[in-house]
Computed example of a mutant assay.
Amino acid sequence: MSEKNTFLCATLEYIVGDTMLSGLLLTMIISWLIAFFGVLQFWLYIKNQDYKLHSSVSQSFSLLWLSIGGILFFTGLNHLCVWLVWTDGAYAMLYIAQTILGLTLVLGCWHLMGRLFHSLRALSFVMWVYAIAALAFWFMLFRFGFESMQVTYFSVQAALNHPARIIYTVMFAPLFGIVLYGLVRSLRTFALRQSLEDPRLRFELLSGLSLLVLALAGTMDELSLTYDWATAIARLCTLVGAMLAYFAIAGLRVPTEELVV
């Protein structure tokens, strides 16, 4: 075991002892609830093939939240490994979660840029850029790893290495701008119509809100801008976003004969 892992192991034994911290247990459960809703909305999407609005936008949105569920599932496993004082397992779960994060950013590009660009050539170009950026993110992740992993009562704070954080921020910033733009546009449309009967508008509003919550809470969590109990609050906000994503997908269950082609 490396010197860093030996020190962390001793720290975990001191903090955790023989019983699991109730705060860390709460954060772990919240993480797995997010994963549950991520899988649930995807299951609902693929189950009701004849009763939803088909589009690459809704498909990419569902896949995006499925990948978010994967991230939080392995994050919860990381917390479990911390409880078991298994440092190698804890780091392994972090690496898996961050690997899925790179894929999630590409899926986010597919979903959000698909809303913005109507040209397949433009969308393909941006997708290639994000795919290359994701490869760079993965390289930095496995090359430099994590700067630290600290255990608090409510959370496990893992600080990603600086180059990987820069790549993440550069990839995230344009997507966040598109989320805001799309949500404002949907709110303006809703203000004009004063109705959510249109399933497309309902989907745009709910999906936009879910992504806004995810962008704010998830990024604060990812960049370790939250600490201890604030991490649990951020995770709760992400859970709200996952529930909104479920309702967005559920709102697409419209009989085919009612759709206007």
Rank of each mutant, 00 (worst) to 15 (best):
W65Q: 09
L66V: 09
A131H: 08
L24W: 11
S119E: 02
H79M: 07
Q41V: 01
Y91Q: 03
L116V: 04
W128T: 03
V129I: 11
D18P: 01
V106Y: 00
G69K: 00
R115A: 00
N48I: 05
L84P: 01
Y45M: 04
I96L: 05
S60H: 14
G114T: 07
S124I: 02
A134C: 08
Q49G: 12
L66P: 00
V129M: 10
W128Y: 06
L25H: 09
F73I: 15
F37W: 14
D18K: 11
Y130S: 02
V126I: 11
A90T: 10
Q98G: 06
V16R: 12
A131W: 06
V126S: 06
L33T: 12
F125I: 01
L63Q: 15
T99Q: 04
S58Y: 14
V16A: 08
L44Y: 15
R121F: 02
M20N: 03
S58I: 13
T27P: 02
L24H: 07
A90V: 06
A136R: 12
I34P: 00
H79I: 02
G70V: 05
K47P: 00
G114Y: 12
L53G: 10
T27G: 03
L135W: 11
L63T: 11
E13I: 01
F139V: 05
T19I: 04
G89R: 04
L63W: 15
I30C: 05
A90W: 02
L105Q: 04
L26A: 08
A97P: 07
L135E: 04
N78Q: 15
G108F: 04
G23P: 08
W65A: 06
G17D: 03
L26K: 02
S67V: 09
L40V: 12
S60G: 11
V16E: 10
C109W: 03
F42G: 01
Q59L: 10
H79E: 15
L44R: 15
L123K: 14
I34W: 00
Y91C: 02
H118V: 04
F117W: 08
Q59H: 12
W128D: 01
S124Y: 10
A35K: 00
L141G: 03
G108E: 12
I132F: 14
W128A: 07
Y95C: 13
F73Y: 15
H111W: 13
L77K: 11
S22P: 00
S60L: 09
K47C: 03
F36C: 05
Q98H: 10
M28C: 07
